[in-house]
């Protein structure tokens, strides 16, 4: 469950989230070793990581906010900017490219009215490219909120979009 943008803006870590993070930190050899676990926990609850949240997470990890951001900005599954309610990851790697990635991209951008890397104005979708999803035998593929969709064509794309209000 991803919070709305408005909710995100005011969210600080709930006790539940914090204790989950502390457990991840406790399970690690060194606190900073849990940096990605903590970032991914934050992602799971809040979708993206604001500067304020980054600071809070840094305290938990005994890192400086800059150190944590250095890690956060390296990985593509950590979002440092607000995202839509749903995140579409479109595979643009070679097998999908051969099998029709261009069509998928064109369909998606046309349907959503946004380009890759953008969020729809109503905050419903964020559209991002992704490297090979390991579904090359069922290309082209994409992933919405962690759910994999394969053998895409225009109709299936339209259908899938419908499923995510």
């Amino acid at each position: 469950m991803i919070l709305t943008r408005e909710e995100q803006r005011h969210s600080t870590l709930s006790e539940e989230v914090r204790s989950e993070m502390l457990a991840a930190v406790a399970a690690c050899e060194r606190k900073r070793g849990a940096a990605l676990d903590v970032l991914l926990i934050a992602k799971r609850y809040y979708g993206w990581i604001s500067d304020e949240m980054l600071r809070e997470l840094a305290v938990i990890l005994e890192m400086s906010p800059a150190e944590l951001d250095s890690v956060a900005t390296f990985y593509n599954q950590i979002y440092r900017k607000p995202i839509g309610r749903h995140v579409i990851l479109v595979c643009d790697s070679v097998s999908c490219w051969i099998m029709g990635y261009d069509l998928v991209r064109v369909r998606l951008t046309a349907r959503l009215g946004i380009n890759l890397g953008q969020t729809t104005p109503d905050g419903r979708f964020t559209l991002l490219p992704i490297q090979c999803l390991g579904a090359c035998d069922q290309a082209p593929a994409m992933m919405v909120d962690g759910e994999l969709f394969v053998n895409l064509d225009a109709t299936t794309i339209d259908e899938i979009i419908q499923r995510y209000p």
Binding site: A34, L36, L39, Y75, Q77, I78, Q131
Partner: peptide, 19 residues
């Protein structure tokens, strides 16, 4: 958290160390 290079064995160790 994503990145092809994280699968390279030594990078993976840095990733596991939270870096």
């Amino acid at each position: 958290a994503g990145r092809y290079i994280a699968g390279e064995a030594s990078s993976m160790l840095n990733a596991l160390e939270g870096g």
